[in-house]
């Protein structure tokens, strides 16, 4: 069976969109898809070690943030970092931190980011990945 590929340009650093990305990654993992994630600007903030577990960023319907976060807890939904980790354990997921985005948030080295990140890259890698993917998403 031919392996399909998903490329995700992950711009958002807010918990709601990162949670949605985690759900989509779960679907990709269930189908053994190859996944390449490019962590851009605001998402690079969320991927920094000191920020990843802070749940105070909700970009959509932000006046309902407390209700949203309480519902995630009620539904026992995994934190987005756990969802990403599960996907990485189940299928081939590579997470690239955009070098420019890292610098914006004073993250110069891979060690500045959570262990889920595989490397720091330039936009050329994103273009190459996007050209060879059946599914391209921007979140």
């Amino acid at each position: 069976m031919e392996t399909k590929k998903l490329t995700l340009a992950l711009f958002s650093g807010s918990v709601d969109k990162l949670t949605a990305a985690g759900v989509i990654l779960g679907g990709a993992a269930a189908e053994d898809m190859d996944v390449e994630i490019f962590v851009l600007l605001q998402a690079a903030f969320a991927f920094k070690k000191e920020n990843a577990m802070v749940n105070d960023r909700v970009s959509e319907i932000s006046d309902k943030k407390d209700e949203f976060l309480a519902s995630l807890k009620r539904l026992q939904a995994p934190h987005w970092t756990e969802a990403f980790k599960t996907a990485k354990e189940m299928t081939n997921v590579k997470i690239h931190i955009c070098g420019f985005a890292g610098k914006v948030w004073h993250g110069e080295k891979l060690d500045d980011f959570i262990d889920l990140a595989d490397d720091i890259c330039g936009i050329g890698e994103y273009m190459t990945s996007a050209e060879t993917s059946g599914i391209n998403l921007f979140i």
């Binding site: 759900v23 679907g27 539904l75 026992q76």
Partner: peptide
């Protein structure tokens, strides 16, 4: 679990 938990459990 909620979606995609059951699907991943099956996988």
């Amino acid at each position: 679990t909620s979606c995609p938990g059951p699907l991943l459990a099956a996988k």
